[in-house]
């Protein structure tokens, strides 16, 4: 028990130090990818032969949808680590990820609607892709609501972990929805990695933007995990020392 406590105490403290060293690199990587993706996507990628300049919404829509799903996958893996190994750091990662993931899902839905209006003639249809992404948003909301009503920290972590793991079934449904069901939504742009159905001039800004969105998630995740770490470890000596040095 003492050993177990010691290990976990060390791991949160270690994570606090590691994240501090990582953050400048992540912020730099985000800035470079975001600047290149934004400028190349908006101004240098050629206009689409069918959608003209309207297709440029892809550079914010696809990365936000991709990141929204990636964040849920991170939550599910963190959920397993929380349940099986009782890792505190995984529980913190899971609960912080939920609100960031909800934001990216919201962004995917809104940019999708804005893209749908000129191209499909409608903001929204109840087809499989759009509906399953809306369910992803509700899964994030459900997770946040569930955690907010459980006062005990350990029960909160475990209940959240179970919900995150169960909800992961929605990810393959989202991914294959455009293949399994007839829909207005266009097929995947990137899933055929060997031969993406997009020209290189259009592809490179897209990849840069996906990287930028993931780096941004990582930056916000670490910033907010650090807040939760010091809160959870408020009674420890190291937090006291870190805080006295900081202020």
């Amino acid at each position: 028990m003492l050993h177990w406590f010691n290990q976990h105490f060390i791991s949160l403290k270690a994570f606090y130090a590691t994240s501090s060293a990582l953050l400048p690199w992540l912020i730099t990587a985000f800035s470079l990818c975001f600047a290149y993706g934004l400028i190349a996507g908006l101004f240098f990628a050629p206009a689409d032969y069918q959608q003209g300049d309207g297709f440029r919404i892809i550079y914010v829509h696809v990365p936000s949808a991709f990141t929204a799903m990636a964040i849920y996958a991170v939550m599910a893996v963190s959920g397993i680590l929380t349940l099986v190994f009782r890792m505190k750091i995984a529980a913190i990662c899971m609960s912080v990820s939920a609100s960031i993931g909800a934001w990216f899902t919201f962004l995917a839905l809104v940019t999708g609607a804005i893209w749908g209006k000129p191209m499909w003639g409608t903001w929204w249809i109840w087809d499989a892709r759009l509906t399953s992404v809306l369910i992803l948003l509700f899964l994030y909301f459900g997770f946040i609501a569930l955690q907010s009503v459980i006062p005990d920290q350990q029960s909160r972590d475990r209940a959240g972990a179970i919900m995150a793991i169960v909800g992961v079934i929605n990810l393959p449904i989202i991914h294959y929805s455009v293949i399994w069901w007839n829909t207005l939504h266009q097929g995947p742009t990137l899933s055929k990695l060997a031969a993406p159905s997009i020209a290189p001039d259009m592809l490179h800004p897209l990849l840069a933007m996906i990287a930028a969105f993931l780096f941004f998630y990582a930056v916000i995740l670490l910033l907010r995990m650090r807040n939760q770490i010091v809160l959870r470890e408020i009674k420890t000596q190291w937090v006291k020392e870190v805080m006295s040095h900081a202020s």
């Binding site: 300049d53 829509h61 962004l107 809104v110 804005i114 209006k117």
Partner: peptide, 9 residues
């Protein structure tokens, strides 16, 4: 449409 989408992002 394009500028609204980027602004919201």
């Amino acid at each position: 449409y394009v500028w609204t989408a980027y602004s919201i992002t």
